[in-house]
């Protein structure tokens, strides 16, 4: 009998307490080593547990991009849709069955370039979705092109001389559009992130959580931040809490990542309003899973 390595006796659960939520037959993931998506998934699952949300009642929806591959690895109902459109699919899913907890995994390109219109309209409607936007400031899946959040001057395969475009501040965008919960953290803040995800999940309305995340393979390599560690260090050094940021001028905030919870307010939610209208007009809430009975 061959002698076993010590590591063989460590169970999957000991390696990662959240492994029980994964489709184990799909591992390993396609994510690069050092990618920030791993930290985000763990923070999400931690937030999910602390929000006491039934995993079996969870539906994940995503579009296209690295971040949008997350739902495929988690063992719950998941809808991996077309580029930029995840939020519109999620809107139908949530209205069709308001009892579901619907979470959207998206990225900076998916949510704010091709899907920008759906993002602002979902925020306007305050539909009860939790959107986790993993912002790595670059298109990773297609090999490192500039995105709407790429900082000015940053390098990408389609910004070989440095980006000359003005980036979006996603927090300002969704806040202005009416989101009722808005938070931003980086992968250097996993605990705060999971807490904000918990708060977002518990908010009965449109919740948007931006996760500033590292893409060492493309963003890091192009922008002199070659290792995941150097990127996370950069996040840590440049992050500044919202409360402190409020006291600083625009110049002082240049190049900083403002983190924290920006909005957390109560506002009427759309799927509830649709349910209520149904109640007024038909005497009952919208009929669930009616395709099997009608």
């Amino acid at each position: 009998m061959a002698e076993k390595n010590k590591q063989d006796f460590i169970t999957d659960e000991e390696k990662n307490p959240y492994i029980k939520y994964f489709r184990k037959d799909r591992l390993p993931t396609i994510f690069c080593s050092g990618c920030g998506i791993g930290i985000t998934i763990n923070s999400f699952l931690k937030g999910l547990e602390s929000a006491d949300i039934d995993f079996n009642n969870l539906s994940l929806v995503s579009g296209i991009g690295c971040s949008s591959r997350v739902p495929g690895y988690l063992n719950c109902d998941s809808l991996h849709t077309t580029h930029g459109r995840a939020i519109s699919f999620a809107t139908g899913l949530k209205i069709g069955n308001p009892d579901l907890n619907v979470v959207v995994f998206t990225g900076d390109g998916d949510a704010s370039a091709i899907g920008g219109n759906h993002l602002i309209h979902a925020a306007r409607r305050n539909i009860n979705l939790t959107v986790i936007c993993i912002n790595n400031n670059i298109y990773g899946m297609t090999g490192g092109q500039v995105s709407p959040t790429s900082p000015e001057g940053s390098l990408a395969t389609t910004a070989p001389y440095g980006s000359i475009d003005t980036p979006f501040n996603l927090i300002d965008l969704v806040t202005a559009a009416g989101a009722s919960f808005v938070g931003r953290w980086t992968t250097a803040h996993p605990l705060q992130l999971s807490k904000s995800i918990k708060n977002g999940l518990l908010n009965n309305g449109f919740s948007f959580i931006e996760v500033v995340s590292q893409c060492p393979t493309y963003y890091g390599r192009k922008n002199k931040l070659k290792t995941p560690v150097s990127m996370i260090k950069m996040f840590k050094e440049n992050s500044i809490n919202k409360r402190r940021a409020d006291t600083l001028s625009e110049e002082e905030l240049l190049g900083k990542i403002v983190v924290g919870e920006f909005v957390n307010k109560k506002r009427e939610e759309l799927s509830k309003k649709i349910d209520d209208l149904s109640y007024i007009k038909s005497g009952r809430n919208t009929i669930r899973k009616s395709a099997y009975i009608l």
């Binding site: 459109r85 809107t91 069709g96």
Partner: peptide, 14 residues
């Protein structure tokens, strides 16, 4: 988004 919502709603069982 109209057809996106319809696809989502169909998977919700409607």
């Amino acid at each position: 988004s109209a057809i996106g919502s319809v696809i989502g709603a169909s998977w919700s069982g409607i």
